[in-house]
Amino acid sequence: MTRFAFHLAPALMLAYGVVRLIDGRDGSHGPGPAWTWGHLLFLGSLLLYGAVIAGLYRRIRHGVPGAGTARRVTAGAVTAVAAFGLITFIRVAIVDIVVGLQAADGAEKSTLADRYADDPAVLPQAIYDIGPAFFMIGLLALLVQFAFITPGRKPVAALSPVLVVLGFVAITANLDLLPAGAALIWLALIPFTRNHPEAPRPADPQPAAAL
């Protein structure tokens, strides 16, 4: 399932980007069926990115020989940052879906979006605004750490964070480049869809022979 998520998470993001371009042909985005279906695709993508983050963490913690305590602690901290950012990103997608279903036109969509800006009011609005960036930073940091500690696969492992940076830069620069950015992220994650041998575990001590 985890290897499947490395494919499907960016694929659904790419599909959302295509639907978004179709929705924006009239010069505005939503509300309407394209807005709703697009954000459902986006929500599915984000949920699958949770499996991607978990899969990267497992690769670093269990699948890389010589990953010491400091590296495992670092991976855990970075995973927590990425997970927090992902949760706030999921909230953005859910709010956009709710707003799109409730709004009758673009003006009402903007009004409802402002109303839901700090809902649920458990965190300051500023955290909700910058939270998704933690997901991007955390995902990138996990890929960088994996590249540093992976023996024998340095060129392939080092290319993944570069592609992810290019993808995030494209998306941040212009949301119309979302399909291209998602394609770059997909390319970055493809190496993780292959089987990687687990680090050998020490054998259980054999009981002493009975005298």
Rank of each mutant, 00 (worst) to 15 (best):
M1Y: 11
T2L: 10
H7A: 13
A9C: 08
P10L: 03
A11C: 07
A11G: 03
G17K: 01
V19S: 05
G27I: 07
H29A: 11
P31G: 02
W35T: 00
L40C: 05
G44Y: 01
L47G: 07
I53R: 01
I53C: 03
R59F: 00
R59M: 07
R61L: 01
H62N: 12
H62K: 08
G63S: 08
G66I: 07
T69S: 12
R71G: 14
R71D: 14
R72L: 06
L86H: 01
I87N: 00
F89Q: 13
V92M: 12
I97L: 08
V98P: 04
V98C: 02
K109N: 11
L112Y: 06
D114S: 15
D114L: 14
D129R: 12
I130F: 14
G131S: 02
A133L: 15
L140Q: 11
L142E: 06
L142V: 07
V144S: 03
F146E: 13
I149A: 02
I149F: 04
P151M: 08
V156W: 01
V156Q: 09
L159S: 12
V165R: 06
V165W: 03
T172E: 11
T172R: 11
P179Q: 03
H196E: 15
P197D: 14
P197F: 04
R201W: 06
A203W: 02
A203H: 10
D204N: 09
P205T: 09
A208I: 12
A210Q: 14
